[in-house]
């Protein structure tokens, strides 16, 4: 009996049994991490091409008079043209909690019904609680026609003249 039982050797830092247990534990942990990673990738947000998020052609610059705001519901943005002729594609998503703002031509303001934020034509906050100006989308010009890329909204604290795009 005693002869066959492996005697733990004093100078061994890790016994064979501990080593195997540790290895099995480590394998188990790796397996768990892999499963978790798989689940996360499986559940990751699915973005569908062609929906909101593509490039929207808004037409020739002349059709938007200076000082006007035109809504593009499918693109979730407003095309605003400042008095000096510069363009800005202003996102419809309120920077407070994400309600849709609407343009009130009479007051010259974007108003959010949810918590009462107001923004001026170029998207600057006129009335909190919104913490920053409305997001914008990049505008590109080709042959005098404007294209708005709605893939990624650009955040900004407030309006700066270089945000305007001129034809």
């Amino acid at each position: 009996m005693a002869k066959n039982t492996p005697q733990p050797k004093q100078n061994e830092a890790v016994s064979r049994r501990d080593f195997l247990a540790l290895g099995a534990g480590a394998l188990g942990l790796i397996g768990l991490l892999q499963t978790g990673g798989m689940a996360l990738q499986f559940l990751a947000p699915r973005r569908v091409d062609g929906e909101f998020g593509g490039v929207v052609a808004v037409g020739p610059a002349e059709s938007f008079p200076p000082g006007s705001v035109t809504e593009f519901p499918d693109g979730r943005f407003f095309l605003a043209r400042a008095a000096d002729g510069g363009f800005l594609a202003v996102s419809r998503r309120c920077t407070h909690l994400g309600c849709a703002v609407s343009w009130h031509a009479a007051d010259g303001q974007f108003a959010c019904p949810c918590h009462g934020s107001h923004f001026d034509l170029i998207g600057d906050v006129q009335n909190p609680p919104a913490p920053r100006a409305l997001d914008t989308y990049p505008i590109t010009v080709s042959d005098g026609a404007l294209m708005v890329d709605t893939a990624k909204a650009q955040q900004r604290d407030s309006f700066a003249p270089e945000q305007l795009v001129y034809v």
Partner: peptide, 13 residues
């Protein structure tokens, strides 16, 4: 928020 919505806004996902 992205995870819950599965996209940039409240929709099918």
């Amino acid at each position: 928020s992205d995870f819950l919505l599965g996209g940039p806004e409240v929709g099918q996902s």
